[in-house]
Computed example of a mutant assay.
Amino acid sequence: MTIAVDTDGTGTNIAAVKWAAGNRNVSYFDGAGTTLTGGTFEAADNGTYTVYAIDEAGNERVEEIAIANIVNKAPTIALDYTPKSAAADGVDITVSAAVADDAAGNKIEALKWAAGSLATADFDDPDVGTDVPSSGLFHVSANGNYTVFAADSAGNRQVQSLVIDNIIDSPVTNVPYSNPVVNQASYYLVPGREYTLSIEGLELYVPADAIKQATNVTLKKGDGRSKELAPTRSIDLVRRL
């Protein structure tokens, strides 16, 4: 915050002007304090500041000013999403943003979201991001990182990111085929992990890079009469004797 200082020697010229943080008396400025140049100084924090002046006749005086409206803490952003279970229709992300020292008149001036893991500077581009609705909720239909940006009226800015990985493709209708199902087992797979799926002694290894998004996999064990796999999300394992 910029503090402007106006001095008047009342008949004689001002010889020196200094300032210091805190409540100071005249004697403090005998060898201490910061010389004022340009008629202003910057206050970095809330508190009391003292200005000292002496004129050419040797008259000295101090004046104090109390600052209470400096806000230098970034807004806080809390993110959540629903549902947490596997979802074919996407998820709703909820946003809650708050400012520091709202009693001083500070408030949220901008609240945006964008796909990807972004930094505060990315939102300098006015084309980046979409305004978060007044409801504080927006819907996404793809897995990945999402970033929310907030800026307050004091000029403080903040970003918060969230990873969504529970969106799956809509279920595909099973196509009838000739293999009678004897037994089956279902699994929920997420990207970045390797799996060994099993059903009655049969195993299927899934490498970590094979899963591109969270999905459900069902293993179905037939009775040995199946000739081909039907085009579904299920995988038939048949023991050949």
Rank of each mutant, 00 (worst) to 15 (best):
M1S: 12
V5C: 08
G11R: 14
N13G: 15
A15R: 15
A16M: 14
V17N: 07
V17T: 15
W19E: 10
A20F: 11
A21K: 14
N25H: 10
S27E: 14
S27R: 12
S27F: 03
G31T: 08
A32Y: 12
T35P: 01
E42W: 02
D45N: 13
Y49V: 01
T50Q: 06
I54Y: 00
I54G: 00
E56F: 03
G58H: 07
N59D: 15
E60D: 10
A66D: 13
I67Y: 02
K73P: 00
A74T: 14
P75R: 05
L79T: 08
D80F: 00
Y81D: 07
K84N: 13
S85N: 14
A88M: 10
V91M: 09
D92L: 11
D92P: 03
I93A: 02
V95L: 07
S96E: 14
A97Q: 05
A100F: 10
A103P: 01
A104R: 10
A104C: 10
G105M: 11
L111C: 07
L111E: 07
W113L: 10
W113N: 06
W113H: 14
A114W: 01
A115T: 09
L118H: 00
P126N: 11
P126T: 11
G129W: 03
D131Y: 00
G136E: 08
H139M: 05
V140N: 04
A142C: 00
N143V: 09
V148P: 01
A151Q: 13
A154T: 04
A154P: 05
G155W: 03
N156E: 12
Q158D: 02
I164C: 11
D165C: 05
I167L: 04
D169H: 12
D169I: 06
T173W: 00
V175I: 15
V175Y: 08
P176K: 10
Y177L: 04
P180W: 09
V181C: 03
V182L: 11
A185P: 00
Y187E: 08
L189V: 06
Y195C: 05
G201P: 05
E203V: 07
L204W: 08
D209H: 10
D209E: 12
V217E: 04
S226I: 10
S226F: 00
E228W: 12
E228V: 12
S234G: 03
D236C: 06
V238E: 15
